[in-house]
Amino acid sequence: MAAVGRTRPEGASTGRGWALAGPALAWTTAFFLAPMVFVLAYSLFRRVGGELVASLSFENYRRAFTEAAFRTALVNSLEVSVITVIASVLVAYPVAYLLAYRMPRRWGQVLLALAVLPFWTSYVVRSYSWLLVLAKEGVVNRTLMALGLVAEPITIANTRAATVIGFVHFFTMLMALTIYASLVQIPESYRKAARDLGASGWRTLVHVTLPLSLPGVVVGAFLTFVLAIGDYITPQILGGAQELLLPQAIMLQVQRSGDFPMAAALSAVLLLVIGLAYLASARRFGLGAR
């Protein structure tokens, strides 16, 4: 973005830079930074007997990591998110590969746009439509029964499997996008050179294409993990009350118990997990000079 060779503006102009960015900064500070500080502060308070006790304590965090309900929620969230990431990569990569390399560029772009179209259903509506498909009286069960393959409807909705299916549906589209973008950026001459030097199609994939597309995969995987682990809607609609994930636990604290401090602490844990995920993957994003 730098204007090459530009001299530094004098004081008045520099002030102007701050002035222009000022409103945006003010908004972010007032409505984002300040609330985040409140969240962190609240996480150290406690709610005792319906009253807010504003003395500092790590009680909430202790409970978050030791109380069975919360610990289970955290573990469940991690498991579901990791499974989602892995499944989405496995499903999306071959799709992105075929669209990027096995057809004329135009078709690939059209098919990609098509693949991403359901992305544009409202997220809530999208999860609802999976309920339509997976419910006891839903599309899958009715079809199976009509075909005589099962006698009784099988339970898919309100299970972890349903949540994962709902997630994988959404994130496969996301991953297909990021992986496709990564694949088409690889100059074709690299693959030609590999083939020219004796690599088979498979070995070209393993030695050249895969490593060079890795940044796209990592970006997609990171986004998937972060969005999945923080999502309230899909587990609530599809997973039901059988298994609680972290966002649902947070919501329960807000709505049922009115225990904002506990909700805040759980949120802080969520942010911590996301932060760790970022640290683990940032290096592989491939941003900047290669």
Binding site: P187, S189, Y190, K192, A193, D196, L197, L212, R290
Partner: peptide, 13 residues
């Protein structure tokens, strides 16, 4: 035959 490509196509990784 082996080919030297116009953009060299050196594997960056």
């Amino acid at each position: 035959t082996t080919t030297v490509f116009q953009d060299y196509a050196l594997f960056p990784h």
